[in-house]
């Protein structure tokens, strides 16, 4: 048991190191993050202004916190739908992974999670810092929201890995998996609240969003960390995230087992 845990911890660390192998990519990502952040500041602050300074619970400080925290998480939450494991299933390399004494799903998620956690250092923290220095934002003054927020961020990033794994696992059945990836990309950014915060959606769209795991990847961690919602609501949001994590991970395990039975690798 302890040996198994150590293996996955090492995979996590390997992913972390893989992320650190491309510092220039991280810098490029940060510049893009900051640019989008400043554009979001322009349009969303003007929206608040048009609404008279306050809109659905957002004032300028809360909106700024939403913008810069979500920009900071952008490099760590997979909203693109592409993963390495999808490519391995497509080209048959996954057969080698199945031959290893490891759980294919857990191993690929651990590796992915490692490099996504790394992105918090060169892209996440500086994005938030840029927001604090250039624009200013309202953040909680007690330690509890930060602790709960850290848990919520971790859950959100992990959830994006388990959900994207489902998209990848579809390749056991679909020869051309790109369609589902595109669908994921289109739906995830919008419903996770990347460009417009979910609380600003009209009611029916908010209901639609909350029926998907996407708000749990970005909007919920931002809400908990920024202290925009009270403690009870925060605990509720974290519980929702945990529930989605369990559901997507369990579904991924079922798909992996079924996919393994179906898998046919050509060639000698």
């Amino acid at each position: 048991m302890r040996a198994t845990a150590r293996t996955y911890a090492r995979l996590l660390a390997a992913g972390f190191r893989r992320g650190s192998a491309y510092p220039l990519a991280a810098l490029g990502g940060l510049v893009a993050n900051a640019t989008f952040g400043l554009l979001k500041v322009g349009i969303l602050f003007a929206t608040l202004d048009a609404a008279g300074g306050e809109l659905n619970g957002y004032d300028v400080g809360a909106m700024s916190a939403y913008i810069w925290l979500s920009q900071g998480l952008l490099g760590s939450v997979n909203l693109y739908g592409r993963t390495d494991v999808a490519e391995r299933i497509k080209n048959g390399d996954i057969a080698v992974d199945f031959a290893r004494p490891l759980d294919v799903q857990a191993a690929s998620i651990a590796l992915e999670l490692g490099s996504r956690l790394f992105a918090l250092l060169p892209r996440g923290l500086p994005s938030v810092l840029i927001g604090v220095l250039l624009v200013g934002m309202s953040m909680p003054t007690t330690p509890l929201p930060y602790l709960l927020g850290a848990l919520s961020v971790l859950l959100g990033i992990t959830l994006s890995c388990t959900t994207v794994y489902l998209v990848a696992a579809s390749r056991f059945w679909l020869v051309e998996g790109r369609g589902l990836e595109i669908l994921y990309m289109v739906a995830s950014g919008f419903l996770a609240g990347l460009f417009v915060p979910v609380p600003l959606f009209p009611g029916w769209l908010r209901t639609l969003a909350s029926a998907t795991p996407f708000p749990s990847m970005l909007q919920h961690p931002v809400d908990v960390l920024s202290g925009r919602v009270d403690l009870a609501t925060s605990l509720g949001l974290v519980a929702v995230q945990a529930a989605w994590l369990v559901v997507t991970a369990a579904l991924g395990a079922v798909l992996t087992r079924a996919g393994r039975v179906r898998l046919e690798v050509q060639g000698g």
């Binding site: 491309y22 220039l24 990519a25 810098l27 490029g28 990502g29 510049v31 893009a32 900051a34 640019t35 989008f36």
Partner: peptide, 9 residues
């Protein structure tokens, strides 16, 4: 390696 930089513009 930093092609993401150009995503900015």
């Amino acid at each position: 390696d930093g092609a993401e930089l150009t995503n900015a513009f």
